[in-house]
Design a protein around this nucleic acid. Structure first.
Lengths: 141, 141
DNA sequence: TGTCCTATTGAAATAGAATTTCAATTTCAC
DNA sequence: GTGAAATTGAAATTCTATTTCAATAGGACA
């Protein structure tokens, strides 16, 4: 199975774009941190390794990653967009703790099946979906 | 069963706030239109009935309604916040058509049960959740 | 290597919605 | 009626997301 770097390189090539030092660094950090990051959060991380990188470049690189289906934009409650890795990972839903902000990724095949069934009942062709459950996590109880 | 007006009046009273002509009008329009409205969209509707009302008042009234659990903020794809009536209506999920933008509200008790089961598996106490399925609706196929 | 063309970058500017400020007005309690 | 508090709308501000732009870097090719 190819890794994120390889997939990104391939995507760039196909688009006649270049893999620059900046992009490489941003993707590295993004793939390493297994959390849902806003542009600003990722920018802060990247900046620790390379002062000179601008926030705009992080923004643009995340857009590229989303276009390449390597990242996916998500948003919980607040108004800022976050990105999560969407490569080599199965589709999943989110349990968001309203107390501590922790986000757990979960998956249930039966749930997926039921959703498909619901769609077909309405003659609807699902493309993708998102399910977020907000509440209190184990620790916070 | 009480209606929206009654619930809002009660909420205002409890908060020592007033039911003004503006608020009354905004709530009327909001309850009447059974769609998901952005502040601006509702403002346009309200403006037709009363020129003098400002957009800010619509914004503030919707916030109040959300606080009173009469409205709920939702957001589909784009970056603007929309509000939907959340009173006297059962919980429901959304099928969002990516072609025409239509939003269908759906409900499946089995789906709800499975979600609860999933939560308890993780020791998670659900407060509320949202499920949005994006795809193509019957008409657009 | 030098040259041309295109991609890339970061800072600054812009866009656009959400939210706050503020002075004027209205409403309520007394 | 009077005073205190709530309400309102316009304008200002804030906060992200996004675009513009001039400078730089990189690749293709002679």
């Amino acid at each position: 199975m190819k890794d994120v770097n390889e997939a990104f390189r391939q995507f760039l090539k196909q688009k006649n774009l270049q893999l620059t030092m900046q992009r490489q660094l941003i993707v590295d950090e993004f793939a390493k941190v297994k959390r849902h990051l806003s542009v600003e959060e990722l920018y802060d991380l990247v900046k620790k390794r390379e002062q000179s990188i601008g926030q705009v470049t992080v923004f643009r690189t995340l857009k590229l990653l989303a276009e390449a289906n390597i990242a996916r934009a998500v948003n919980f409650g607040d108004k800022t967009v976050r990105y999560e890795l969407d490569f080599g990972t199965e589709h999943h839903d989110h349990l968001v703790c309203l107390q501590c902000g922790a986000v757990v990724e979960v998956f249930d095949p039966d749930l997926e099946k039921l959703q498909d069934k619901l769609c077909s009942k309405y003659g609807f062709s699902p493309d993708w979906h998102r399910l977020e459950i907000f509440g209190t996590c184990k620790k916070c109880k």
